[in-house]
Amino acid sequence: MDTANMQADASSFIGKLLRGHFGKGPESVFVAIGQPYITVYIRGFMSPTEKVLMAQKEEVILQKTRDLVMASLIPEIKAYLAITTGYEIGSFYYDWGLHNRSAMFVVMSGDTEMLPQENAVGQPQAMRDALHQEIINLSKQSEKQPDDIFSHLVNPRTVIVEREGILVAIERELIRMGMAETLKLAKRSLEKALLHNNNHFEAILGSRVHDIFVDWDFEKNKSVIVFCM
């Protein structure tokens, strides 16, 4: 099966899966398959019940509910992608753009170790350096400067930034105490506010930024940020 057909089949599968578990499917699902990432950009995704929760400013309840459902869906999505693409499937990151009724899944194929920076595709050196510095500045405000940072232009509309070594001592202790879910909710709120209130990204990327997503893998001490233009 060629890549275009794999992407179409994966879009259909994920749309139906979300509809079956959330009661309402997304308006559109865009899948991009290519080493080392598989990205799934979802738009128009919010059930009537979730709209009520948003109106009542109960975003934390909405996110917790979605996270519970995703815990059961992630193994199914990874298994499907492994069979469809033939790739070895690794880490899975996801985030919700509730204000835009959007979502992003990022699946790592093969070895999930960070790729060398020189392997970045399609990014001018000046753009990459400016983007990395802005992410470093933001990271210092919310946690600490990453030990390593790498970015990849997946396609003209999608940039992925990986950070390694971002957790501070108090965060590692909270995780050890079983408070990983609470920590992730807090980091989502803090980092997304910093990302969305930053007025430099559009100038750096040379395009309007429609969505920004962020997720963490606490076990690997890694984070993924996705810019959608």
Rank of each mutant, 00 (worst) to 15 (best):
P75Q: 13
M127A: 03
G34M: 02
N197K: 05
H99P: 00
S11D: 07
V159R: 07
A10F: 05
L73N: 07
L68I: 08
I212W: 01
F105W: 11
F13Q: 05
L131F: 11
A10I: 07
R157T: 13
K57T: 11
D9V: 12
I135R: 04
D129R: 14
G20E: 13
Q141D: 11
H200V: 05
Y80R: 06
G34F: 02
N197C: 03
A130C: 08
I33Y: 12
Q117N: 15
Y80M: 03
G122I: 02
R176I: 10
I38T: 10
D215T: 09
S189E: 15
G34H: 02
K51L: 09
D147M: 13
M46D: 04
M54C: 06
Q133R: 14
G97D: 15
Y87E: 14
V106P: 02
G44K: 05
R19S: 15
M104T: 05
V161Q: 09
L190I: 11
K64F: 00
L167G: 07
K220T: 05
A130N: 13
D2Y: 05
L174V: 03
F30N: 15
I136H: 07
V40H: 06
H210R: 06
A8M: 13
M104E: 04
E162P: 00
I83Y: 07
K51R: 14
H210I: 04
R188L: 01
V107L: 08
I166L: 14
N119V: 08
I175N: 03
E113A: 12
R43H: 00
I166K: 07
S142N: 09
R101L: 13
S151K: 10
P75F: 03
A71T: 10
I212C: 05
I89Q: 06
F227K: 07
N137M: 06
M114Y: 02
S12G: 08
E50S: 10
G34P: 05
F150M: 04
I83K: 15
F92W: 04
T3C: 09
F213W: 10
N155V: 02
E58C: 01
V69G: 03
T3W: 11
I175Q: 02
G110Q: 10
W96P: 09
G178M: 01
S207C: 11
S223Q: 08
E88N: 14
V107E: 01
M1E: 03
M54P: 04
G25D: 04
T158A: 01
A203T: 12
V214Y: 02
M127Y: 02
H196E: 12
A180G: 10
G206N: 05
A71I: 00
V224W: 08
M179D: 04
Y41Q: 10
L194I: 06
G20L: 11
S142G: 11
E76C: 03
F105T: 09
V159W: 06
L18E: 06
V107C: 03
V40C: 14
G178E: 14
L18I: 14
K184N: 07
G178C: 06
R101C: 08
L195W: 11
S47F: 14
A10T: 10
D67S: 09
G23V: 11
E134A: 12
R66C: 05
R208W: 01
K16M: 14
E162S: 10
S109P: 00
I61C: 04
Q56G: 00
